[in-house]
Design a binder for these strands. Structure first.
Length: 951
DNA sequence: CCACTTCGAATTTTT
DNA sequence: TTCGAAGTGG
């Protein structure tokens, strides 16, 4: 899309300057390119200055990019363009309020003013804390609302409601509601009845009438706990239909007091915020809007000759109305309803899909008491950008089919209506080879990695770029996930297999395993006997729970760890401590880099001590704060990111793991939505006894409104359209969502095979700071010291027999009523019957041995420990028929002997092998000493190759 | 065809 | 804990 003449559709847009334009710009149609050309065109051809053109984008980042692009393509004076109004809605409103907005709160009847030092609360968590404080005070001062308060799940719920109302342009005033927006709260009766009748229409069956969709969904009514006086199920539901009379009754529920509650919380919160010199993002838009609404001279002065809005599908209703107030008649909105995936941020897809009715309605509202909008919208025109420069034709076709795939078996989806709304895109640029494949994997993550390794450098997969053909690289591949968690798990699996990878976008940095380990070391640094710290560190080093407990209780920490601790103590910055800890564990990834970055920057600027760093990390964990992890400098890596964060990007290969349909819509107890309006889902009542009841009226109304899977489909559309040539969909084998099945590609069932990639030597080099790198402890099974002849092993009886005997022994030690079934088991029973002391079966134990500066952990499971008075017996069952392996078993028992001798210092520890075939315990007279064990280690070739028995 | 039980999953992120 | 979707048995 770089140096090319605009196509005929784009030309249409660039040259159409006067009037109202709705531009349907699908994925890959050169939207940004066209907007910047249009901007230049306006400037170059008319008596217009940059200050006359308002260009609104979705993010600050996009605004910056757009500005740079315009500066580079436009011949206009650069310095004038630097200050041009190219920004987000919030940036614009912030500017307006800080220059003209001091008295804006007066419009709502609030005496507080907006000051020039007002602070924007950007951090969501911080605002939530502030809001909870406010709610506590509020309910003390307004005790008559306490039943409403009691029905909430948590106080913060109301803040979400307030935001949602503000995004719709519903604002409170001192003694009511701004303009006539109160009616919005009541809901839309006509529309509700339309929806209700449609959902309640009986379905024609083969012989008789079937239940309506609504009647089917009402089956759960019986199992609810409704407040006293709710109608009986039989009164609401007939055989095939739901009572219309009761539904109308439910819609017309008296909500005056509920509205008062919401109003007072809303209004008092605005006052509370202003009183503390705070403003949030919602209120920023609200105040700018009411200011421009009320102050006619100011509005007249600010209005722009040209307005362009990018990503219009992500705007909300109040932003649409605000644009109309700011406009002189030349408005151009660009977007794609198919890519609207931010409704949880209160974006309204209807701004685009119902553009014309909305603009007429809004202008009508804005002109009711005063003529604010003096331009005509009658010459409103639509422009469709119809050429896609990104994807191969197969991918474009597939993406459009995905928009009409049913989400559940009996979803009532009007496929033809959706198809009619889609502007079909023509593939105009990408003629390269293309493939779309579905896979079913037992383990999707393994499968994805297998597929990536399969296609990279594979001559079957060719990508055309700049007129040349080449093989695929890792950096051509993006895995687009629905949820961050899946992405993080895939990331760590890829790292484990040494497949070059990077996670793009925000992650909860301080909840990652490397960070938790680092936090543990900080705790130990602050307090050498920190149990929370040691528990994490020791568990990570492979110590069992019991061992960890006894180490912490006895404060006899492993020597190598104490040495490491003293090395850390000598360091003076958090960053260098973090580096050293990560080096010790050979952790080196984008995540560890970022942790070091963050710690260096926060502790560098504010000189934090260890305690403050710990509390900083803890707060980040509690708040789930996310940080962007930068991957660009990592070179040839494949990318993992969420679909939401991949908006606007493109990749030669896109892999799309199954995204399960999720619901849980509106989990709040006070709900506001179309067309039902403001409703209480839960009702608190102290009669007959205090309880939070379900509201039967809400239940009925919510069942009438169909589950909406449209955004789920749009999300898939966005994901699919990121792909240029290759698209791979994956699903698990067990539960595939209907949405996946209905996409209509037959999945290939494959058993993936992971081939670890050889990582170039240079990437393996670690940063070495402050001395020698301590190698990570090596975990070995005690069997790696033993040399067992396999045939003699189980004496012809086989592994299964041995396992059965062990399993019987464990069960019998716990429960003497279990019956032996073989001679060996009978011998075990005799042994256990003869022991009088305490019996402990199957204890995991670990013996740390320091070997040439490296810590080796031998682990094993002791079959039985018998503690009687001052003597501790270790007993290991062997089902061998002969004693040919006895010397090897002695090695194993010697390890156990040293572990238990360390724990029971005052008791006499003895080790026995119990040969179950003969029923004979053999005492180990002389266990190997630690030095003898070290001698055995030397003879192991294992340590030189790094093939550990880690699992 | 319907009523009931069982099963699995419980976001996304910008200003 | 809560809620759909899908599976099951009358």
């Amino acid at each position: 899309m770089v140096s090319r003449e605009p196509n005929r559709y784009q030309k249409q847009l660039i040259e159409a300057l006067e009037g109202i334009y709705l531009v349907d710009a699908g994925p890959g149609t050169g939207k940004t390119y066209t907007i910047s050309l249009r901007y230049s065109h306006i400037l170059e051809n008319r008596d217009v200055e940059p200050d006359d053109i308002l260009l609104i984008t979705f993010t600050e980042n996009a605004a910056q990019n757009m500005k740079e692009r315009i500066i580079n393509t436009c011949s206009y004076d650069r310095s004038a363009l630097r200050d041009a109004p190219i920004s987000t809605f919030h940036g614009l409103c912030n500017r307006i309020l800080r220059t003209h907005g001091f008295e804006a709160p007066e419009v709502l009847g609030i005496d507080e003013r907006i000051t020039s030092t007002i602070q924007v609360i950007e951090n969501e968590i911080l605002e939530m804390q502030e809001f909870r404080n406010f709610m506590t005070i509020f309910i003390e001062r307004h005790p008559h609302f306490r039943d409403y308060y009691a029905s909430l799940h948590h106080g913060g719920e109301m803040l979400n409601l307030i935001r949602s109302l503000a995004s719709r342009g519903i604002f409170p005033t001192r003694d009511g509601w701004f303009q006539d927006c109160e009616k919005e709260l009541d809901g839309d009766y006509e529309r509700f009845m339309d929806i209700f009748r449609q959902a309640n229409a009986p379905v024609q069956g083969s012989r008789k009438m079937k239940q309506s969709f609504l009647r089917k969904r009402m089956n759960g009514y019986k199992n609810r706990c409704f407040s006293p006086g709710a109608p009986h199920f039989e009164d609401i539901c007939g055989d095939t239909q739901v009572s219309e009379h009761l539904s109308i009754n439910a819609f017309n529920e008296d909500r005056e007091e509920l509205k008062n509650f919401v109003h007072d919380v809303y209004f008092c919160y605005i006052e509370y915020m202003l009183g503390r010199n705070y403003i949030n993002f919602s209120f920023m838009i609200m105040f700018a809007y009411v200011l421009l609404f009320e102050n006619h001279t100011l509005r007249e002065r600010i209005r722009y000759r040209y307005i362009m809005i990018d990503e219009f599908q992500d705007t909300n209703e109040i932003q649409f109305k605000l644009s109309l107030l700011l406009c002189r008649g030349n408005l151009c909105v660009v977007g794609d309803w198919k890519q609207s995936i931010f409704s949880f941020q209160y974006a309204s897809v209807k701004n685009i899909t119902e553009f014309e009715p909305r603009i007429l309605k809004y202008i009508d509202e804005l002109n009711r008491d005063h003529r604010r909008i003096d331009y005509s919208v009658d010459n409103f025109r639509q422009i469709h950008l119809m050429e896609n420069y990104r994807s191969a034709p197969e991918i474009i076709d597939f993406s459009e089919r995905a928009l009409v795939a049913k989400a559940t078996k009996d979803e009532d989806l009007d496929i033809d209506a959706v198809k009619a709304k889609i502007t079909h895109l023509e593939a105009a640029g990408n003629k390269g080879p293309s493939e779309i494949l579905s896979y079913s994997f037992d383990d999707q993550k393994e499968g994805i990695l297998w597929k990536i390794n399969d296609i990279v450098d594979n001559p079957d997969y060719i990508f055309h770029e700049n007129g040349k053909s080449r093989l695929l690289k890792y950096c051509d591949v993006a895995v687009l996930v629905r949820k961050r968690k899946f992405g993080m798990e895939l990331l760590s699996l890829a790292e484990k297999h040494d497949i070059p990878v990077a996670y793009e976008g925000g992650i909860e940095l301080f909840r990652t395993p490397p960070s938790l380990l680092l936090l543990a070391w900080f705790r130990i640094l602050k307090n050498i006997s920190s149990a929370r710290g040691w528990a994490v560190v020791l568990e990570n080093a492979g110590y069992s729970l019991e061992m960890t407990g006894s180490i912490i209780d006895g404060k006899n920490y492993p020597l190598d760890m104490l040495e490491f601790h003293s090395r850390l103590s000598s360091m003076d910055t958090a960053g260098s401590i973090a580096r050293t800890v990560f080096d010790k564990y050979s952790l080196d990834s984008t995540i560890t880099d970022r942790i070091i970055d963050v710690l260096e920057s926060v502790s560098g600027t504010s000189r934090m001590n260890i305690g403050q760093i710990i509390s900083f990390m803890e707060q980040n964990i509690d708040n789930g704060t996310t940080y962007d992890v930068d991957s660009t400098r990592r070179g040839d890596v494949f990318r993992i990111q969420t679909i939401h964060s991949a908006k606007g990007l493109e990749y030669p290969v896109v892999i799309l793991p199954d995204m399960d349909v999720s619901h849980q819509a509106g989990n709040s107890s006070i709900d506001f939505r179309d067309p039902s309006g403001l409703r209480q889902k839960k009702i608190y009542s102290s009669d007959p006894y205090p309880f939070i009841y379900d509201n039967w009226r809400y239940y009925l109304l919510s069942k009438a409104v169909d589950m909406d899977y449209d955004e789920e489909r749009r999300l898939r559309y966005v994901a699919i359209t990121r792909a240029q040539n290759y698209l791979f969909l994956t699903a698990g084998c067990s539960s595939q969502s209907q949405l996946f099945i209905n996409l209509g590609t037959e999945p290939v069932v494959t058993e993936p095979e992971i081939l670890p990639v050889q990582v170039p030597e240079s990437d393996m080099n670690r940063l070495v700071v402050g001395g020698v790198v301590q190698p990570a402890p090596l975990k070995l099974s005690c069997h790696s010291l033993m040399n067992i002849a396999p045939s003699a092993g189980e004496g012809g009886k086989g592994m299964e027999y041995g396992t059965a005997v062990h399993s019987f022994a464990q069960r019998y030690a716990a429960d003497k009523t279990v019956r032996p079934r073989t001679p060996d088991e009978n011998n075990v029973k005799r042994l256990l019957d003869s022991l009088d002391g305490e019996l402990i079966s199957e204890i995991e134990c670990i013996l740390p041995i320091d070997h040439e500066g490296r810590c080796i952990l031998f682990s094993g499971v002791i079959d039985l420990v018998h503690i009687d008075g001052d003597s501790v017996d270790i007993i290991d069952y062997k089902t061998d028929r002969s004693m040919s392996n006895h010397d090897e078993y002695v090695k194993q028992l010697s390890l156990y002997y040293h572990v238990l001798s360390g724990i029971y210092k005052d008791k006499r520890v003895q080790a026995y092998i119990y040969y179950t075939a003969e029923g004979r315990p053999v005492h180990i007279e002389r266990p190997l000493s630690i030095d003898e064990i070290k001698g055995l280690i030397n003879s192991l070739s294992l340590l030189n190759s790094d093939a550990t028995s880690q699992k």
